[in-house]
């Protein structure tokens, strides 16, 4: 039987996001040129929450986009699965912007590799930073996050899932083993 362990609750997630919002502002010395891009699907909701937090602190709206990385995956031709294609919507130029990519879980790093390739097809950002709610380790590519909600050393056979109100009705991070 699956054993579920809650490693972070709704309040914890909210505090982590508040901290990340401040860290983004601190590292970039304000909001100038910053845009957020959430990776489908979890990252989209988190990017939206970060946008609200940042605009509450700085009283400016920062542009926020949605990225679906399916077309850039490296396993499309080898795996038997055909992932369902989601929407990409980046209605602003990325040229010379500071792009903060937002995802829920950082694992092998392959999603982020695909996301960076996709972003560069949209323009030439000044820089790309990465914000994730959970870093669970086991990287297969030389990628690390700039902003991390929680480091969560996990085993490969465990499943880390970030449940968000927008998707499942409840905010929590759980490990299923």
């Amino acid at each position: 039987m699956d054993i579920k362990k809650i490693v972070m609750d709704a309040e914890g997630i909210d505090r982590s996001l508040t901290r990340i919002a401040y860290e983004i502002l601190e590292k970039n010395k304000g909001v100038e040129d910053i845009v957020l891009v959430g990776i489908q699907t979890g990252g989209v909701f988190l990017a939206d929450r970060l946008k609200k937090k940042i605009s509450a602190i700085e009283e400016v709206e920062i542009p926020t986009g949605i990225l679906d990385i399916t077309l850039y995956r490296d396993d499309l031709l080898t795996s038997n699965k055909k992932p369902r294609l989601g929407k990409t919507d980046i209605p602003f130029s990325l040229d010379d912007r500071k792009v903060v990519l937002v995802d829920d879980v950082l694992f092998t790093g392959r999603t982020i590799r695909a996301a960076m390739d996709a972003l560069i097809d949209f323009g030439r950002p000044k820089l790309i930073q990465l914000a994730v709610l959970v870093d669970r380790g086991h990287r297969e590519l030389p990628i690390r996050a700039d902003f991390v909600g929680k480091n969560l050393p996990s085993s490969l056979w465990e499943d880390v899932s970030v449940n968000l109100t927008e998707k499942t009705g409840k905010d929590e991070i759980v490990i299923v083993s």
Partner: peptide, 9 residues
């Protein structure tokens, strides 16, 4: 609608 209308899929 992108400026670079090509994906590597």
């Amino acid at each position: 609608t992108r400026e670079i209308k090509k994906v590597p899929t």
